[in-house]
Simulated scan of single mutants.
Amino acid sequence: MDHTAVLALYDRDMREGAQADDPGARIERVGRVVRLVSSALGWNGVVWSDLDDSSADAAIAEQIAHYHALGLAFEWKLYGHDLPVDLGQRLEAAGFTPEPEETLMIGEVADLSLDAGPPEGIRFLPVTDRAGVDLVADVHAKAFGTDSSRLRHQLLARLAEDPDSIVAVVALDGDTPVSAARMELVPGTPFAGLWGGGTVEGWRGRGIYRALVAHRARTALDRGYRYLQVDASAQSRPILERLGFQPLSTTMPYIHGA
């Protein structure tokens, strides 16, 4: 993989050319910033910027004013190769709170190891309705220890309005949901994104996450997507590397309250 070329393609298609990922959301391009605006239950934030030392502070202030006028908290999704090099420090100085850094990993689907199946006793259930979404939300809350109301809203909206753009699956041990993950397909681009992948404590370390990645990758391949993208935690990065994903950059959320 040509890392420089693929990263440039990712920036162009998935960031500068971002598409709304929620039926109620919109993409706004203002100056050298691309942002997504949704409801309080959706994701709000800056996905791309092309700034320099002379323009960064004014652009940051403009985004704060814009989202606060709407009464919305928002995220500035900062990548390790974004400019200026001190953009993260400028965001913190403006009142943003950084969250843990993740690794932007991309794999060319045809080159990935896709033979992993679910471990013995685990079955995968496609999510197509509200009952399935409830299972995903239940796993998310238990695996990550966070509220899952936003995820539930987003999944229900996507399944209702554009079901071909989302693939979600729950791993069950008998009738107990123990892991869940989703894949977002971006039409008109060669990219699909892997999200979620949370496993409830007690079922970790059994290969469920690896099998869920392989399951979604096979679906992406069947649907003609060339690349898979993941924002990988420190725990998932080694698994993804063994499957053939490569690190191209880092990404860190900076959060600003309403």
Rank of each mutant, 00 (worst) to 15 (best):
Y254T: 01
E75R: 12
S55N: 03
A56N: 11
T250V: 07
G88W: 01
S165L: 10
E99W: 02
D11P: 00
L70Y: 01
G224L: 13
T146K: 14
D86S: 04
G244D: 14
T128E: 15
F124P: 06
V200N: 08
V33P: 05
A137P: 11
P98Y: 00
R237S: 15
V136H: 09
L78K: 04
R12W: 01
K77G: 01
A180H: 07
P163S: 11
V169S: 14
G198K: 04
D134Y: 08
H256R: 09
D115A: 14
G107Q: 08
A69C: 06
P119V: 10
Y225C: 10
S236M: 02
S113A: 15
L9C: 05
V6H: 09
A59Q: 03
V85A: 14
A160T: 04
L185K: 11
D82P: 02
G24E: 14
G244F: 10
R158C: 07
L240P: 03
T250H: 09
P23T: 11
Q246Y: 07
G45K: 06
P126M: 04
A141Q: 15
G207E: 14
V170D: 15
D164M: 02
L228A: 12
R32C: 01
L41P: 02
A5F: 02
V170P: 10
H66F: 10
A58R: 13
E92I: 05
D57S: 08
R35H: 06
A211W: 09
L135W: 02
Y254K: 02
L114E: 06
S55K: 04
L151I: 11
A69T: 06
S149Y: 07
R12F: 03
H256N: 11
D11G: 03
I106S: 07
S55C: 03
R35W: 03
M252S: 10
L248N: 04
A217D: 09
E101S: 05
W76H: 03
A168K: 09
A131S: 14
Q235I: 15
D13K: 14
G198M: 04
G197H: 09
G205A: 11
F124Y: 13
D175V: 12
E102H: 07
G205V: 14
Q89C: 03
E120Q: 13
D11T: 12
V169L: 11
A94D: 06
A157I: 01
E161A: 15
L51S: 05
L194P: 07
Q154E: 08
G174L: 12
Y79N: 09
Q63H: 00
T219V: 15
G31A: 10
Y227L: 11
T199C: 05
L104K: 05
S113G: 14
L248T: 04
V186A: 09
A61D: 13
L212W: 08
P98Q: 03
A73C: 04
D52N: 15
L36D: 01
D86W: 02
L240M: 14
L212T: 14
G42D: 09
A258E: 12
A116V: 13
R123S: 15
A160P: 01
G224F: 11
V34M: 06
L7S: 10
I239H: 12
F96Q: 02
E102F: 00
H215T: 12
T219F: 04
F245E: 13
V167E: 12
Y227M: 07
Y209N: 12
